[in-house]
Design a binder for these strands. Structure first.
Length: 591
RNA sequence: GGUCCCAUGGUGUAGGGGUUAUCACGCCUGCCUGUCACGCAGGAGAUCACCGGUUCAAAUCCGGUUGGGACCGCCA
């Protein structure tokens, strides 16, 4: 086989006159009889090849037998196309290669879907033939964006004197957090390793070991149901530092992100990034990861409607809830009553009992709720900054239901109304999270971030016996990008005293705490430095920089939404002998 | 665990009780020397996901199963 001299996708006018050797896939054949055009595709792009008896009779004959996705190598001369033959839609459209020799390296069956961007094949089919899907330029681009990010991260953190350290994948199951993926131990039947949900405790222990600045592109595993931005295995840009406070860690993170944005997008993101307290984010956006590319903020009308004749509003307020609204500017005529009632169905998922709405006309309000609000039209519009032509949406309920519902509607209509500038990258720090959150399912308080998060200094006393720990806020911070939680971190607890208090507040007895986290508690006794860190979701970062809406698109071999892998058919039942060795008996054999 | 949606040639689809099962792309054959969504002529290709029910008659209606997608719960 002849050595390839160039990538097809990189050939341009500079190469005119040169003899080159290319290798790649047949994207398209256009057979005009004694003149055949082949679009040759390789990892860098597509280039037109010309076959004619003028250049080679043999090559022309072989070109006639080419089909889509055949793998070929060619030798030929780069020529400028005549003015009328230039294709402005192609990067290589000013040139073509006159082929004097061709070798068919392999044939191909007709692929089950077209190898081109914007294919409409089902997700399932594309995953089954993932190696074909990845041939599509937009898919390859996502994978390469991911690689670029990793490269920038290595460069930046290496320059900042971080030490890359690997932590175990076979580790210990922990009761807090997500469901573990378990790995049975052959040597100790009945005992299991767990795959790490994150390297959290190991990286803290590395601080205890004195490494001072650690990082890792860490694979993490969580056995929970999937979403567009969640896969059971994913990668974190994981870092931890000693002796830095939250602001210093944030500044460092901003440097890291700015470098990635510069390298990958050529953008200079202004620093410092905007910051917002968690309470404020929830109040203004109904979300702990607000998309700040557009306004339409939630406005609190609880005081305004305190004495309202509208019973729905009044009752919600009397029961300790809220009334909030969003203003859809100029949208009064864009949506029918039916459209809005459709949205009402959507927010029932969040527990909302209803969605009140009015359309603002020149001197009136219309819609089902109008009669209750008409009298207050002028002060209401003034309070909301609304005007004729606007559509007002109200939700009256508990604080959480109001935030979830209006938070969802804000994002939904923000997209629908085209308020979002898709070219923007709005980074935002969300600070001062609650230390705990109430888990309705198991009826107890759990760590909002994780159990090793340091409370705010002023809130430390809430962890004391007899106090209400649930009022405490944490020294934790999330980095948000365009409405996605890109990453998060915190200052960690570095004394045994506070860590024990924390575990007690979470319902651990002293014995259980020692059994589960004894290795950490003991380590804290041996001169543990103050420390903190953060982890960024590499998959989400790559997804957002590639303008995709599913992290599958930036993972070479992802799972489908049912947590299986259609190409290899994993997971699969295993041979009984394998189970015997592990001392495992399966209740209901699957075959 | 729950809710909603989808399943028809290789791919995307039309069809909502009786059809020769629609169309486009793709595929195959032939013709064609400037195409790039090539063109022209012809052709092949579908147990309408599976099982059961209703009916004289089911791709179509009903029930279930399987597979897939989105969301809630769950998950940082």
């Amino acid at each position: 086989m002849v050595k390839r001299t160039n990538y097809a996708g990189l050939i341009n006018e500079d190469y005119v006159g040169q003899e080159i050797d290319l290798a790649g896939w047949v994207q398209k054949r256009r057979d005009l009889g004694n003149l055949i055009f082949i679009d040759l595709r390789d990892r860098e792009g597509i280039l037109q090849l010309v076959f004619s008896q003028e250049f080679s009779e043999t090559a022309l004959a072989l070109a006639d037998t080419l089909r889509a996705e055949y793998v070929i190598s060619v030798h030929g001369k780069v020529q400028a196309r005549s003015e009328s033959a230039i294709n402005p839609k192609m990067k290589t459209g000013k040139v073509e290669v006159e082929v004097t020799a061709i070798k068919i390296l392999n044939k191909a069956k007709t692929p089950p879907f077209y190898i081109e961007d914007n294919v409409s094949a089902s997700e399932d089919l594309k995953l089954k033939y993932r190696y074909l899907d990845l041939r599509r330029p937009e898919m390859a681009a996502g994978i390469r964006t991911r690689a670029q990010i990793m490269k920038s991260v290595h460069h930046f953190l290496d320059r900042e004197d971080f030490i890359e350290i690997e932590t175990p994948d076979l580790t210990k199951s922990t009761p807090e957090g997500a469901r573990d993926y378990l790995v049975p131990s052959r040597v100790y039947p009945g005992s299991f390793f767990a795959l790490p949900q994150s390297p959290q405790l190991f990286k803290q222990l590395l601080m205890g070991a004195g490494f001072d600045r650690y990082y890792q592109l860490a694979r993490c595993f969580r056995d929970e149901d999937l979403r567009g931005d969640r896969q059971p295995e994913f990668t974190q840009i994981d870092l931890e530092t000693s002796f830095l406070d939250a602001e210093e860690i944030q500044a460092l993170t901003e440097g890291l992100i700015a470098e990635v944005m510069h390298d990958e997008k050529g953008l200079d993101i202004p620093r410092p990034f905007p910051r917002m307290d968690w309470d404020e984010a929830m109040a203004r956006y109904g979300s702990d990861k607000p998309d700040t590319r557009f306004g339409m903020e939630l406005q609190d009308l609880s005081d305004f409607f305190k004495d309202s004749s509208f019973k729905v509003f009044q009752n919600a307020i009397a029961n300790g809830g809220q009334v909030k609204a969003i203003v859809l500017s100029g949208a009064a005529d864009k949506y029918s009553r039916k459209d809005i009632e459709g949205q009402q169905e959507h927010i029932k998922r969040f527990g909302a009992k209803g969605l009140a709405f009015v359309k603002v006309t020149e001197d009136d309000l219309t819609g089902p709720a109008a009669k209750f609000l008409k009298e207050q039209r002028t002060p209401l519009l003034e309070k909301l900054g609304a005007k004729a032509g606007d559509l007002l949406l109200f939700v009256a309920d508990t604080k959480k239901v109001v935030a979830d519902s209006l938070g969802y509607l804000r994002v939904h209509f923000g997209h629908k109304l085209g308020l979002i500038d898709e070219s923007k990258f709005n980074f935002l720090w969300v600070l001062n999270w609650p230390l705990f959150e109430y888990d309705e399912g198991i009826q107890r308080w759990t760590a909002a971030h994780h159990p090793f998060t340091m409370p705010n200094e002023a809130d430390l006393h809430y962890l004391d016996e007899g106090e209400d720990p649930h009022q405490a806020y944490a020294q934790s911070y999330d980095i948000v990008l365009n409405g996605y939680e890109l990453g998060g971190g915190s200052i960690r607890i570095h004394t045994r005293e506070i860590q024990e208090k924390m575990l007690r507040a979470l319902g651990f007895t002293k014995e259980k705490a020692q059994a589960q986290f004894g290795f950490l508690l003991d380590a804290l006794d041996y001169g543990f430095p103050p420390h903190g860190g953060l982890a960024i979701g590499l998959d989400r970062f790559a997804m957002l920089l590639s303008n995709r809406d599913n992290i599958r698109d930036v993972i070479a071999f992802p799972k489908n939404s049912k947590a299986t892998e259609p190409m290899t058919n994993a997971p699969m039942p295993v041979a009984p002998t394998q189970l015997d060795e592990l001392g495992i008996e399966v209740e209901k054999p699957l075959d």
